[in-house]
Amino acid sequence: MSLINSNNSIENKIINYIGVLYIIPTPIGNLEDITQRALRVLSNVDLIAAENIKHTRFLLKNFNINAKLFVFHNYNEQQKVKLLIEKLLRGENIALVSNAGTPLINDPGYHLVRRCHEENINVVPLPGACAAITALVASGLPSNRFCYEGFLPTKSKARCDMLYNLSYESRTLIFYESPHRLIQSLNDIINIWGPERYIVLARELTKIWESLYGAPVNELLQWILKDKNRSKGEIVLIIQGCKTNINNNALSVEVIHTLTLLQQELSLKKAITLTASIHKIKKNTLYNYAISKLNT
């Protein structure tokens, strides 16, 4: 019995020499949203891995925190993971922060956290600000089931493909979007999902110019076009899930046959477009049918 206790004691000492990776959310606008726990950890760690040194230094200065900073962003993450792991294994405690919000949510950190698990390094996540969740709970749309998709693709074709793939998604959808692509994205949503899909535009959350506006997408687009300031800043789109009930009997044998033949030679999108044009029916109806067949 004494030997077992001795071995456990040695093991505990070894574990204590391994550092801890803390995942620290930071404010998405209002500096008052940082937690006391986050400030305490940031004040005591050996190193802060930051997406942007200048941005993080500004945050720390506001709370009189002096800390050693390490540049860690999307472009160097995979190269710097090894170095950070070595520091953690030597017993250094490291805090991971992004420019704003919760790290890893469309921000760097996945590869580092994954390696920590592989090396049995303790990962301690702190709760805190996240633009997606902040927008969701204020949207008035169902929040018990939702689907976070990050940023829509920058190129129209890839964006439309994603929207087509999500046409039959019944959960509330969350997207981040860039101000200079917002108009194009809303037009793509209208073309693929129709003008009636309800969307809440959450902009500049927790900041001075914070605003939330919800409307069917066609009305939302017109509202934005009336004032260019309505498309500026950090943007989150909360989108109503699909409510369409697929009734395969609504499609004739001829329509289904046409779609099936065209799919053998063309992409789903092109097959649907041609079938809709030939038989004078809505593309959404055909796409929902195609998705329902894939899910059966």
Rank of each mutant, 00 (worst) to 15 (best):
R159V: 10
N191W: 02
I174N: 01
T172N: 02
S167D: 10
S156V: 14
P142W: 11
L141P: 03
N187C: 10
Y198V: 11
L141M: 04
L152W: 01
V200R: 09
R171D: 07
G140L: 08
L205P: 06
I189A: 06
H180R: 10
K155Y: 07
I183E: 03
N187Q: 14
T206F: 13
P195L: 03
I183A: 00
I174K: 01
S185K: 04
T206G: 08
S156F: 03
P153L: 07
L166M: 15
S170C: 11
D161H: 14
S178F: 10
S143V: 09
N191R: 12
E204C: 11
G140E: 04
D188T: 11
E169C: 14
E177V: 09
L163N: 09
D161M: 12
L166D: 08
Y148K: 03
M162R: 15
E169I: 14
L186G: 06
P142K: 12
P142D: 08
Y176E: 02
M162H: 12
K155V: 09
S178M: 03
L152D: 05
K155H: 14
E169F: 14
I183V: 11
K157G: 03
A158V: 06
S170M: 11
E204I: 07
Y198P: 03
L205W: 07
W193G: 02
Y198E: 09
D188R: 08
